[in-house]
């Protein structure tokens, strides 16, 4: 209760600090900082190294409260998973802790809640779309949400699944569609205020990549049989080279999901860190000029870029999953056959 109150006070100060130049005038905070005896002007503050900051830090701490809060901590707090959902400046919702399940702490965390929100949105949205498609006949055109979703579904179906997997792509289509929509919505919800990016957590991306890994291996086993699968591990080389080839091929199996994991996680995390860092430049330098000239325009730019990246990363994850499945299921002489087409 005391903690909530503290956060509320801090949030109030933060909002007031943002509104003050609009209400009064932009040079007021500079005067204020000069009153506090900080020897930097606004222009100097723009060019100032971060090393100047410790001089200003006590002022900030004095202004906001009793406890020192570093920008890095705030960024990490935003990026990382936690057991609470904070709605600054309104308060914090503490998520329930569940008893361990087979020795695993399965408490509900912020990212779990985001996953559930994503799932709920997906289920509601696609139950409507699915219902629309149940009624549709080949002679009627889809409309509204169904039409919008059809563009995405058709894109995944033709440009991702069919062109990468080829024959038998229908079997893997539900997984690819689900993973695309799931990641896309996770990425986008991370850009919503108070949202969190579940795909910016390496555990989530790892799980998704492991799904792709298992599906790839299953498809490979099914396509080549156990013998073909094992032969594939030797890459068709002479038996004397097996001692080198087999470890390389086995490592190759695992690098693919590892790359998927890190790519999605790093992209999602990096964007958020960049946006928050840009915003915190103005807090660190305590300059509204910096806020207006650097932080806001650049973070808006990065934000728009993040919207693009949200789609791009969802597409890349799906695309690479389809590609790996396609590579795993390709038959002997399949390349030559593909070259004909």
């Amino acid at each position: 209760m005391k903690r909530i109150k503290l956060i509320q006070v801090k949030g109030f100060f933060r909002i007031m600090a943002l509104l003050a130049p609009l209400l009064l005038n932009a040079y007021l905070p500079v005067q204020a900082s000069e009153e506090h005896g900080a020897p930097v002007s606004t222009v100097a503050a723009v060019n100032a190294e971060v090393a100047v900051d410790p001089a200003l830090e006590p002022v900030h701490a004095e202004a906001t409260g009793h406890e020192e809060e570093k920008a890095g901590d705030v960024i990490m707090h935003h990026i990382l998973n936690s057991h609470s959902f904070s709605f600054e400046p309104f308060g914090t919702v503490h998520l329930p802790a569940l008893p361990p399940f087979f020795g695993i702490d399965i408490s509900i965390t912020k990212h779990v809640v985001m996953l559930w929100i994503v799932s709920a949105i997906l289920l509601v949205l696609f139950s409507f779309v699915g219902a629309a498609y149940r009624k549709i006949t080949p002679r009627t055109a889809p409309s509204g949400v169904a039409n919008t979703m059809e563009a995405l579904v058709e894109f995944i179906r033709l440009d991702v699944a069919k062109s990468n997997i080829g024959h038998g792509y229908e079997k893997h289509l539900p997984y690819l569609l689900t993973v695309f929509m799931f990641i896309l919505l996770c990425n986008l919800l991370g850009l919503v205020p108070y949202g969190a990016t579940a795909t910016g957590n390496i555990n989530v991306t790892l799980t998704l990549a492991v799904f792709t890994f298992f599906i790839t291996q299953a498809a490979s086993l099914k396509a080549h049989g156990l013998k073909g699968y094992l032969v594939h591990l030797t890459a068709g080389t002479h038996w004397a080279l097996w001692i080198i080839m087999i470890p390389i091929e086995v490592i190759g199996l695992f690098t693919k999901p590892f790359a998927l994991t890190v790519r999605l996680f790093a992209n999602m995390t990096a964007g958020h860190i960049v946006i928050l860092s840009l915003i915190f430049i103005s807090f660190i330098l305590k300059s509204y000029v910096v806020a207006a000239a650097v932080s806001v325009p650049f973070s808006i730019f990065i934000y728009l870029l993040e919207i693009f990246v949200a789609f791009l990363q969802a597409f890349i994850f799906t695309m690479l999953s389809a590609l790996f499945i396609g590579l795993a299921t390709v038959h002997e002489g399949g390349e030559a056959e593909a070259a004909h087409h």
């Binding site: 998973n81 399940f101 695993i104 702490d105 399965i106 408490s107 509900i108 965390t109 990212h111 779990v112 996953l115 559930w116 799932s119 997906l122 289920l123 696609f126 139950s127 779309v129 699915g130 219902a131 498609y133 579904v153 289509l173 539900p174 997984y175 569609l177 689900t178 993973v179 929509m181 799931f182 579940a198 957590n201 555990n203 989530v204 790892l206 799980t207 998704l208 799904f211």
Partner: peptide
């Protein structure tokens, strides 16, 4: 591990339900 656990369960359920109702 908890997040991995929940991700697995959530994703598999979403996959199964969406496959049935939408895809």
């Amino acid at each position: 591990p908890g997040l991995i656990f929940w991700t697995t369960i959530t994703f598999v359920l979403v996959l199964i339900i969406l496959k049935k109702i939408a895809w």
